Deep mutational scan, measured.
Amino acid sequence: ATNIVGKVKWYNSTKNFGFIEQDNGGKDVFVHKSAVDAAGLHSLEEGQDVIFDLEEKQGKAYAVNLRIK
């Protein structure tokens, strides 16, 4: 899925991951530091509006192509 809109539920910059809540009511999506770095960001803030693509690997969904809304 592409261009999914959501809000950062939480992001832990020490542990380098967090979760994004989808605006469409879907399951929360894992986001890793690598996606944050690829977006040219240092971190994510709770409540921040983002747009992302959804990829699945080994049955787990995660956010890629992250951008600030």
Rank of each mutant, 00 (worst) to 15 (best):
K57T: 11
E56R: 10
A39S: 07
S34G: 11
F30K: 02
K60D: 07
G6V: 00
D28A: 10
N16Y: 14
T14A: 10
L41V: 07
K27W: 11
K27R: 14
S13K: 10
L44H: 01
H32C: 03
K7E: 03
I51R: 15
N12Q: 14
E55T: 12
K27P: 13
K33M: 05
L66N: 00
A39F: 03
H32T: 04
E56Q: 10
N65R: 12
G26K: 11
I68N: 13
Q48D: 14
F52T: 02
E21S: 11
V50L: 14
S34V: 14
G40C: 05
I20V: 07
F19K: 03
D23F: 10
F52A: 03
A38S: 10
N24V: 15
V64Q: 08
T2D: 10
T14P: 13
E56M: 08
D53E: 05
G59T: 13
A39P: 02
W10H: 05
G40Y: 09
N12L: 07
N24E: 06
F17D: 01
V29N: 02
I20S: 00
Q58T: 07
V31D: 00
G6A: 04
G18V: 01
I68M: 10
V64M: 08
I20M: 04
N16V: 03
F17Q: 03
G18K: 00
I51K: 08
S13G: 09
Q48G: 06
V29I: 10
T2F: 08
V50W: 02
G40T: 04
D28F: 06
V8W: 03
I4F: 06
E56W: 08
V36I: 11
K9D: 01
Q22L: 14
W10K: 05
F52H: 02
L44C: 02
H32D: 05
N12A: 12
K69G: 07
K33F: 13
A35S: 15
S13F: 15
Y62L: 10
L66S: 00
E45H: 11
R67Q: 08
K69H: 08
A1R: 06
V29C: 04
K69W: 03
I68R: 10
W10V: 05
G40M: 10
S43K: 07
G18D: 00
F30M: 04
N16H: 09
N16K: 12
Q22H: 13
S34Y: 13
F52K: 00
I20A: 01
D49L: 10
I51G: 04
G26V: 12
V36C: 04
K9C: 03
G40R: 08
I51S: 07
F19H: 02
Y62P: 01
Q58G: 08
D37M: 07
A63N: 00
D23H: 10
V31W: 02
L54M: 13
K15Y: 13
K15F: 07
I51Y: 13
L44G: 01
N12C: 06
F19N: 01
A35V: 09
R67T: 13
N24S: 07
K27I: 14
H42R: 09
D53V: 03
N65E: 09
F52V: 04
K15G: 05
N3Y: 11
A63H: 00
L44W: 03
A35K: 06
